[in-house]
Design a protein around this nucleic acid. Structure first.
Length: 150
DNA sequence: GCCAACGTTGGC
DNA sequence: GCCAACGTTGGC
């Protein structure tokens, strides 16, 4: 099992939305490295659900991969803000995975608290702040869950 | 709302 | 292939 971190703006889609929906296609990723990470994901992989552009920005909960990477349908939808005229169903450029809800963290782990932890200093969240899909190491995963009271 | 960081586009 | 211009992300 591998560990990941995926960002979403809670105003757009939050951990509460995922709790309500039970599962959701992670559409709208338009960055090649983020896409490549999603291609590596396997069913059962564990995901930190991070609220970006929030007050405070924080890891809010846990999700899991329930469907491996497949074409993101929004790239073909002319009405979608994620429409990509250079992509086609025959040769899709963008992919999504499907995530299932696991749980909320009893205590959200704020970015500031992550910054304060030496063991987490190398997380992509701190080093490559703009990447929306990131890999998380096992020791980082355990630390975040511990900080979140899980 | 500002703006730094940084990924992408496109002219050459 | 370089790099300036431009657009987006995301913390604050």
């Amino acid at each position: 099992v591998k560990y990941w971190l995926m960002k979403s703006e809670p105003d757009v889609y939050s951990i509460d939305d995922l709790a309500r929906d039970k599962h959701a296609g992670w559409d709208g990723v338009r960055n090649y490295q983020a896409r490549n990470y999603m291609r590596e994901m396997q069913i059962g992989d564990q995901v930190l659900f991070y609220h970006s552009n929030a007050t405070p920005s924080a890891v809010a909960g846990i999700a899991k991969v329930v469907k491996n990477a497949h074409a993101d349908p929004t790239q073909f939808d002319r009405k979608s803000k994620y429409y990509d005229s250079k992509s086609s169903p025959e040769d899709p450029r963008w992919q999504q995975v499907e995530l299932g809800f696991v749980k909320r963290l009893p205590k959200a782990v704020a970015l500031q608290d992550i910054r304060g932890e030496k063991a987490l200093a190398k997380m992509d969240l701190l080093v490559r702040s703009r990447l929306s899909v990131q890999a998380v190491k096992a020791n980082e995963w355990r630390k975040i869950l511990q900080m979140g009271g899980a």
